[in-house]
Structure formats: C-alpha cells, structure tokens
Amino acid sequence: MISVRGLKKEYKTGEASLFALGGVSLDIKEGEFVAITGKSGSGKSTLLNMIGTLDRPTEGTVLVDGKDLSAFSGKQVAEYRNKTVGFVFQSFYLEPSYTVYDNVELPLILSGSPSKNNRERVEAALEAVGLISKIKEKARNLSGGEQQRVAIARAIVNDPSYLLADEPCGNLDTANSENIMHILSTLHAAGKTVIIVTHDPEDARKAERIVTMSDGLVVSDVENTPIPAQTEEKEVV
C-alpha cells in the first residue's frame, strides 16, 4: 500500500520558484495497476521519483507499507530500491557493456543473495519477459524493445511488490509498446502493484485506474476497465 500525503516539490531556479508538485495525496492499494497521465511538465515523473526515493519531497510524506520513506536511512533506502520497488525508465538505463545476464543479476548481487541461486532467478525473470534466448548478449547490442524487456527483468528479479515505470514505451514503436504493456499487464495479473507514467492514452487504458495530473496536482482519478491483456505472446521484429 502506497500512501501519498500532501506531497509538494519545489524547484528553485534563482529568484523564481516552481512547484512541480503542489500538494498531491493519493492511495495506491496492493495489486493495483495505476496509470499516471497528464501533459508534459505536469509532475508525473516527479511524483513517481518520490515514490521510488529517487528524489526528496519539499513537504508531505510518502508511506509505503506503512513506512515513511523520508525517515529511511541510507541503508534502508538502498534496500528499498533493491527489494521493494523495481524501476523501468524510458531510456532503459541498462549497463550497455554488460551482458543481459549481468544486468539482470546486479540487483541480486547487491542484495547479497547467494550466487548459486542467481542463475535460476535471472532465468526466471528473463523467461517472464521472453528474452531467455539473449541471455549472453551484450545489452548494447539489443534493440530498444529488447532492452526495455531486460530492464523489466532486472526490475522484477528480486521480486519486488511494486513496479514503477516512467514512460516505459516512450522510446518504442507501437508493436514493441504493446509487447511491453502486455508484459506489465501479465506481471500485474501475477500480483504485482504496477504504476506507470505515460502520456499515451492507449497505454493508460491498459490500467485499472487512471490518475491524471496537471500543474503538479491530481485533477482526476478514475477507475478503468482495462482492455484485456492479449493471451498469446507477440514476437517483435
């Protein structure tokens, strides 16, 4: 359960100051699939970053499973990023010179899990995104869609409860986007809480709930009946 209360984020540039978030309150229950939409600059990424401890709020709190993120120590923050949430970004954010395997294994190494189990878990994560065949490939040699799937595998390898995706399809064509959205839907169906930021209404409609932001505020928050996830795996060219 994620509980956002009165969240504000102020950016000061010289004399001027800008509220990227102007007091956002929001509850996201376990197992939800939430899409956050809105115009560019409305504060979507800022909100997601706060939930992911990538940024600190000026005011307000984010409680995740009852714990106040701003009270976390450095160690707790690291552990939170490692085990509780998984991140997916528009620009994939993989280590280009590492192999797919190494990229996905990294969170496991950092969590100190015994390495003999790692192979199994990495393979399971890659299986879930349909990329097991590229396991030995260098990340930089993959297509955009493939890289994003590796990023998802990396995000879920430690089995976090929450998946945070900021424009995961932003750099991808339609077919790849659909594939990614399909994977996210499947993960949601398997029990993960998925929060995606998107400005594509098409993508947003795959979610159960659509939160719309404008000028740093939530302006609408509606239930949505998702278009059912396709059952057959799409092979992307």
Partner: peptide, 15 residues
C-alpha cells in the same frame, strides 16, 4: 551514469 544505475538497483555508496 553508471553510479546512478547501480544506486537505482539498490547499491549503497560504500559498495
């Protein structure tokens, strides 16, 4: 960038 990638998946500064 590399440092931030590692931090993202839960690496601590000491590590």
């Amino acid at each position: 960038t590399q440092i931030c990638r590692m931090k993202l998946v839960g690496a601590r500064e000491g590590t």
